[in-house]
Nucleic acid binder design. Structure first.
Lengths: 343, 343
DNA sequence: GATTGGCACTCGGACGGCGAGAGTGCCAGC
DNA sequence: GCTGGCACTCTCGCCGTCCGAGTGCCAATC
């Protein structure tokens, strides 16, 4: 019994099942694939595959359906990324290039991914701990109140209003502010978020005692911004695609939608991916540690400007998913959006 | 035949149907409500209500179900807001008061609303045309590049990087920058977004010809920010609640999810509400102009700091919805979040 | 004139039996 | 090791039946 052919049979089953969403039997398989053997042989192979836990029958005398393990084998060894047509590539590039700012890039990316794959798309905002502080700005906004603005290298901006107790403008005014600004930027600018955080913490001790309270207040606000900034955000699109999946899947839609609202969960999944470097990660069904997502698969990868991978993106859909094309789309979009961000 | 009793019957039908999600018959009504009359009388009343188009029978010999018109009458004349318990009020206040910034307020609000009503919650970012420019800031970020930051009274921040051609720091440096900053703020600060936009447009003509190109570039970036700022954003939560509705509703879930992703549509709906002042707006089923939402109802109202209503919030759910409690929750949350924003 | 009890009627949904068809497992032969 | 054949199993769809909820109507009653 040829091991090789058995795998070809598995591949054919996965392909057919993904396409028809119905259990596939030995006869149907022969009609759609030139396997060069008879139905009986295929049946023997299928029995063996079932023995190995790669496929399963919903009930006697229905066709077979791939198990999570079957999909896993398919993804690892039996499939190759479906190449993007040049038309698709142009469409991707064109769609992403119209973006005016970071929000727009993310927004367009997630929509693009959802419509390419017809799955739920997930895009993490590029703001990992790898980003660093570009600039700290202080703006007096009347009375003793100061607007503290933090700008990171990934282009994100956080701001806080701080009541510093004294009116810095009325007294020695702009000078104090300029000094303070210089001190803060000296401590934070160019450093990673974590480094900046610890540098800033030491700052109040090093300045003129008269300013100490002011600095303390400003630093506290900045710390707050830094934490917020490290707190990762993400954006979803295409949840409606879930409703178009097979009716079996729709019945368990509730938990999936709930899980998708748990951004923390999704961020964790994307996070581990981003760390692994530029490879495509695929999580299939029960490989997923979160209960609500165990009827789904997630295809994801990292993206970001330059060599630094700053965030992750991917798609979530039923385990019965067209992996080769989903993987290709995810990779292509990640590549393009990274290129856009490099500017 | 007492008109009054007929309406009591309608009210009972709506209440029962909302609770059980099954068509309600004359007998079931008698068991659950003390109407003081016999089943036959109720049947006569129901026939009349059906004649008036307020209820309908899915088929002969099933109970009756309210029509959109029936819900409308119920909402307008037969129900009163379910008062919030003081425990609920405390919970709302407590939950919202922990917020650290605007994003957090909106995030908490939408989650709160979703969990209170067990529906899909929709919250528009408070950034209508009524908001105005608080401050414009320029930050040199190396070479000929300048970071332009726009801060509005609603606390939102937009920023753009502009290449101004010349390196402002190396030449006459900070002075030019300070002048420019003053000019820009003179033109924009304190004005509404629309006013600021037109003031800024005239600015390049009024400055030193040598700076004209620089100003033009900066103003263009600011214009861009202003448009972006007027572009309204919104946030959703609780979409999983849709999956818990009756199975009849779940089958038409796709279009609803699609409609919910069309933020433009939701913004329009919320927008008309915000304009109408502080009243609660209820759109029931087909009263809704958008096809995807015609199996749903939307309860919404305006909110915002002070007397200015700057945005809308609300919930979307199946027409079979507990209107009194949804309306009460929406109103309560709007009130509290407005109070929070008043700071 | 409104209300009521009674009654015949209708229709949908549940139940059960039946047949068709798809698909399987196994076996003997090549 | 592959193949054709065959008996077997199980699901699904169909149909007829039955049951009950619920209605509409009518004559009697207050």
């Amino acid at each position: 019994m040829s091991e090789d052919r058995r795998l070809r049979v598995l591949r054919a089953i996965v392909q057919d099942y993904v396409e028809t969403s119905e259990p596939v039997g030995s006869k149907a398989l022969l009609e759609r694939h030139r396997l060069g053997v008879s139905a009986a042989t295929v049946r023997n192979d299928m029995a063996a595959l079932e023995e190995d836990g790669l496929i399963a029958a919903p009930h006697t005398s229905a066709g077979r359906v791939p198990t999570d393990a079957g999909y896993r084998l398919f993804v690892d060894r039996l499939s190759q990324l479906k190449p993007m047509t040049s038309a698709e590539q142009r469409a991707i590039a064109h769609f992403l290039e119209g973006a005016v700012d970071l929000d727009d890039v993310v927004d367009r990316t997630v929509r693009l991914l959802a419509s390419l794959t017809r799955q739920v798309a997930v895009v993490q905002y590029p703001s990992l701990s790898r980003s660093s502080v570009r600039h700290v700005e202080l703006v007096p906004i009347g009375g003793p109140r100061l607007l503290v603005v933090l700008i990171t290298t990934t282009g994100r901006v956080e701001q806080r209003v701080v009541d510093v107790g004294t009116d810095l403008l009325s007294a020695d005014g702009e000078d104090t502010l300029a000094t303070l600004r210089a001190e803060l930027n000296g401590a934070a600018a160019g450093r990673t978020l974590a480094d900046a955080s610890s540098e800033l913490a030491a700052l109040p001790e090093r300045v003129d005692p008269g300013l100490r309270e002011v600095v303390r207040a400003v630093v506290a606000a900045l710390e707050d911004c830094l934490v917020e900034e490290r707190e990762e955000r993400l954006v979803l699109a295409g949840t409606a695609n879930l409703a178009r999946a097979g009716s079996d899947f729709v019945s368990s839609l509730g938990p999936v939608l709930e899980a998708l609202e748990e951004h923390v969960v999704l961020l964790k999944l994307l996070g581990t991916v981003a760390e692994q470097g530029g490879t495509l990660a695929v999580r299939i069904g029960h490989e997923n540690p979160y209960a609500g997502l165990q009827s789904t698969s997630m295809v994801s990868t990292g993206y970001g400007a330059g060599t630094d991978l700053v965030a992750g993106l991917g798609v979530v859909g039923p385990t019965r998913m067209d992996y080769p094309s989903a993987m290709a789309s995810v990779r292509a979009v990640a590549t393009y959006v990274s290129r856009i961000l490099a500017d």
